[in-house]
């Protein structure tokens, strides 16, 4: 439990969401009903460049799909993982090798080994959190549907945030 909380730091999450431009999504599916597609669609809609990483896909959300992180011919800021937890360590290795700045593991993707690899490689790590939900919580419209964002503020929202 404490191990996971260590990888759910609000400040880290905000920094990643605010600074990232290019997000490689490992396991992104072209099936519009898959959770990965919901997240990819949402992040793309909010201005991030999505890079599908899935050997079983050719193109997802209008972007060319790569078989592995190492095949992406341009820099990637965040590696977002939709894979079984035991598949994470080699993905973390690759994320370090390609110079990504953060490794993000989605809900139920929990790998302390993968997290340690990424951290030792200098990456920020987020675990068992959804990138869509965290974006919606901190800078999106999640509060419009009655979800508990945990955000308490008396500051006026910027219109651009919407």
């Amino acid at each position: 439990m404490n191990d996971i909380l260590e990888y759910q730091d609000t400040q880290t999450i905000r920094e990643i969401l605010l600074s990232a431009r290019t997000i490689a999504i490992v396991g992104l599916s072209s099936n519009v009903l898959r959770p990965s597609h919901f997240v990819g669609f949402y992040l793309q809609r909010h201005g991030y460049r999505i890079v599908p990483v899935n050997p079983r896909e050719k193109e997802v959300l209008g972007e060319k799909s790569y078989a592995a992180l190492s095949e992406i011919p341009f820099p990637v800021d965040v590696v977002d993982v939709f894979r079984a937890s035991n598949a994470v360590p080699p993905i973390a290795d690759e994320a370090v090798q390609i110079g990504a700045r953060a490794l993000w593991m989605q809900y139920y993707v929990i790998s302390n080994e993968g997290a340690a690899i990424a951290r030792n490689g200098g990456l920020h790590v987020v675990m068992d959190r959804c990138m869509k939900v965290e974006h919606a919580r901190h800078m999106g419209r999640m509060h419009w549907l009655g979800f508990n964002t945990g955000v308490i503020t008396a500051r006026r929202l910027k219109i651009s945030n919407q």
Binding site: Q8, T10, Y107, Y108, D128, R129, V133, R137, N148, G150
Partner: peptide, 16 residues
């Protein structure tokens, strides 16, 4: 799946 943590309030400060 049941082990997943629901989001908690802002980690920086727990408001009363």
């Amino acid at each position: 799946m049941a082990n997943s943590n629901p989001p908690q309030a802002d980690d920086l400060h727990q408001f009363g």
